[in-house]
């Protein structure tokens, strides 16, 4: 590389990545840059005035509604992430450690079955399950466990968390499963051999070695859920909007594209900061090995 020029191998490499790179630039970088540009433009009525301004960002960072919705989004995705990963870990652990090797593929296949239907339909199904006269309420009243239908399971944060946690479960199970699969089983025997109980061996060996998978799961669940649009709209009944709903309202309903863009860029920045923090934590776990 000190030569300054490219050797043949490097040129061949660049030639190989050029097509996907161009594709990515076109469908990923170009829209992002457009949004970034819009966020600094001035909003005229039903049009975008090409004048530079910080006003959109000032509004985003000072508006109490934006702050409430942003904090709610962060809170909901944090909760969803927590619930999803906490529920995914035992499943991944079970499949990796307790399922016989020849049956693991079947299990993974079953875990991915929810993906066979569209996300939208799954969300609607949760609405059916959790609704006022839904599956949960009618069976509970039918069994005489409750007199009145439960109301805390639909059109609120709880129902959003339940729905999203279900939707993202495979995304959390798979990376944790992979991390657990990579653990040399003799390490667990070594932990036992050196005097630790099963529980302590899990705490001192299995969990630290599974951490990269857990952190990957956290990122994979956290990043898309914070921008989720469909679930708050349908399950939340539109009454508890998250940040994506706010962006949609600005972009389409109010036709304020610059403000919508500034909201989007701000959300992206916050997600980026959170992700970087997690990547740094992950690096700490990865440092001692590989």
């Amino acid at each position: 590389m000190a030569k300054g020029g490219l050797d043949a191998q490097a040129r061949q490499g660049y030639a190989l990545i050029a097509p996907p790179f161009l594709y990515a630039a076109l469908v990923l970088a170009a829209p992002l840059l457009t949004i970034l540009a819009y966020s600094f433009l001035t909003d005229g009525y039903l049009e975008v005035v090409r004048e530079f301004t910080w006003a959109n960002y000032v509004q985003v960072w000072t508006d109490p509604i934006v702050r409430t919705v942003m904090l709610r989004s962060l809170m909901v995705s944090a909760l969803v992430t927590l619930v999803t990963v906490a529920l995914a870990f035992p499943v991944a652990y079970y499949v990796s450690f307790l399922v016989r090797p020849q049956k693991k593929a079947t299990w993974l296949f079953l875990i991915t079955i929810p993906f066979w239907t569209s996300y939208l339909i799954r969300v609607f199904l949760w609405k059916v399950i959790l609704g006022y006269n839904g599956v949960v309420n009618s069976s509970l009243t039918g069994l005489g466990i409750i007199d009145e239908p439960l109301t805390f399971i639909l059109y609120n944060v709880n129902s959003i968390v339940i729905t999203l946690a279900h939707a993202y479960a495979p995304f959390a199970i798979l990376p944790i499963f992979v991390a657990l699969e990579k653990i040399d089983r003799s390490l667990l025997e070594a932990g036992r051999d050196l005097g630790e109980s099963r529980a302590m061996t899990f705490w001192r060996v299995t969990l630290p070695l599974a951490m990269p998978g857990v952190l990957a799961a956290v990122l994979i669940v956290f990043i898309p859920t914070i921008g989720d649009y469909v679930t708050p709209e349908l399950i939340g009944g539109g009454k508890i909007p998250m940040i994506a709903n706010l962006i949609q309202v600005q972009m389409l309903a109010l036709d304020n594209r610059p403000l919508g863009s500034a909201l989007a860029v701000t959300t992206m920045a916050i997600v980026a900061v959170v992700s970087i923090v997690f990547l740094l934590i992950n690096r700490r776990f990865l440092k001692v090995r590989s």
Binding site: L187, E189, A190, D193, P208, F285, V288, R289
Partner: peptide
């Protein structure tokens, strides 16, 4: 008893 494993089973995170 203590064991020296065939793969040595050295904890990679330590």
């Amino acid at each position: 008893t203590n064991m020296v494993f065939q793969s040595y089973a050295i904890f990679p995170h330590l």
